[in-house]
């Protein structure tokens, strides 16, 4: 009983820590994205509130909280109100299986630095990312607006198509780790990160995760200059804020996923493992912000063509190739 209580407290502490760190990171990624994009366009970005604009996220939250929570006429009210939560929730839940450090021994107890080391952790993340679609789709459908509906439709088709390529890109990773558990995947990269072992898989993964997370250049579901703001056109106040924060939590999740699957997780010389993990996550987040500053948005049909006709065959080829290579090396 005492043991159960201690492990419960440990889990709660870990949950609180992860929630705090992830939410702070998401809030400051918004600021970082605005500042980095600004510098890429030869402007400063927000720098008025606090030293260097550091209090900007706080002001944004206050602004969003004090705005009117508007429900459009003839919208499907309850689905409309509930949808933004789904997106943010699915993004937050993904962190339960992400290992951010090797186990730590404290007071004679070995504490795994992950909330729950599921042996099907990868499938869990996949399940959540496919459930995150529902927030977008139901929100867009319930708004009773053509732009929202179009955005939701685009999001749906895009997410379903690119999830295939995403899954196929991770097959070689699972092959070399021989497990679905994220902990085992990190452990398998102790000497070589998967980035060097499966470079093609890494490229396919990065492209399809960009589409999966609806980030520029693949932000069709919210293409501002075509369909206003896509699925969250009709949202205001904190419900829009939930979509927005969900997107940036998602960015942290992607960073963590890329780190775990390809960049070797917490492994790294000199610095403590947690620092390495956070540095790698921030680096991946910077990559995505960089891509947003550099790439134009392709046309929608180009996106679907690329996904189905280039990326998925390439991913299949990659699976076959890396299977053959690992078979040849092992035997």
């Amino acid at each position: 009983m005492n043991d159960l209580l201690i492990s419960l407290v440990l889990i709660l502490v870990k949950l609180g820590l992860i929630l705090g760190v992830v939410l702070t990171m998401a809030a400051y990624l918004v600021l970082a994205e605005r500042k980095i994009l600004g510098r890429m366009q030869l402007r400063y970005g927000p720098n008025r509130i606090g030293p260097g604009g550091m209090m900007q996220p706080l002001c944004d939250v206050i602004k969003l909280l004090t705005k009117e929570d508007f429900v459009p006429d003839r919208a499907d009210k309850w689905i409309f109100l509930f949808a933004p939560g789904l997106t943010a929730l699915a993004a937050l839940l993904s962190f339960a299986v992400v290992p951010f450090s090797p186990p730590v021994t404290l007071f004679g107890r070995e504490i795994p630095m992950v909330v729950c080391d599921l042996n099907i952790g990868l499938l869990y993340i996949f399940g959540l990312s496919s459930l995150a679609v529902y927030g977008v789709v139901l929100g867009g459908w319930a708004s009773n607006s053509k732009y929202s509906l179009l955005g939701a439709l685009r999001g749906l088709a895009q997410l379903v198509s690119y999830e295939l390529a995403l899954g196929l890109a991770l097959v070689p990773v699972v092959m070399s780790a021989k497990s679905f558990s994220l902990n085992a995947i990190v452990m398998a990269q102790a000497d070589w990160p998967n980035l060097l072992r499966h470079p093609l898989a890494f490229i396919i993964f990065m492209i399809s995760i960009t589409a999966e997370s609806k980030r520029t250049p693949f932000d069709m579901p919210e293409a501002e200059n075509e369909i206003v703001a896509g699925y969250h056109t009709e949202y205001s106040g904190m419900r829009f804020g939930l979509f927005f924060v969900g997107e940036y939590i998602n960015l942290v999740v992607i960073g963590a996923m890329t780190t775990v699957f390809f960049l070797g997780g917490w492994h790294g010389p000199f610095l403590p493992p947690v620092v390495w993990f956070i540095l790698k996550v921030l680096f991946v987040a910077f990559l995505f912000i960089w891509a947003r500053g550099s790439m134009p948005r392709p046309r929608y049909d180009q996106l679907m063509h690329f996904g189905w006709k280039v990326l998925i065959p390439l991913a299949l080829l990659n699976v076959v190739l890396s299977g053959a290579i690992s078979l040849a090396v092992n035997s």
């Binding site: 980095i36 510098r39 890429m40 030869l42 402007r43 500053g293």
Partner: peptide, 21 residues
């Protein structure tokens, strides 16, 4: 054509912004 823009934006990242405060 896909990689070149990344190089350009990286260059701009370290230039002084033209904004007048």
């Amino acid at each position: 054509g896909t990689l070149q823009p990344f190089w350009v934006t990286l260059g701009y990242l370290f230039k002084k912004p033209v904004t007048i405060q």
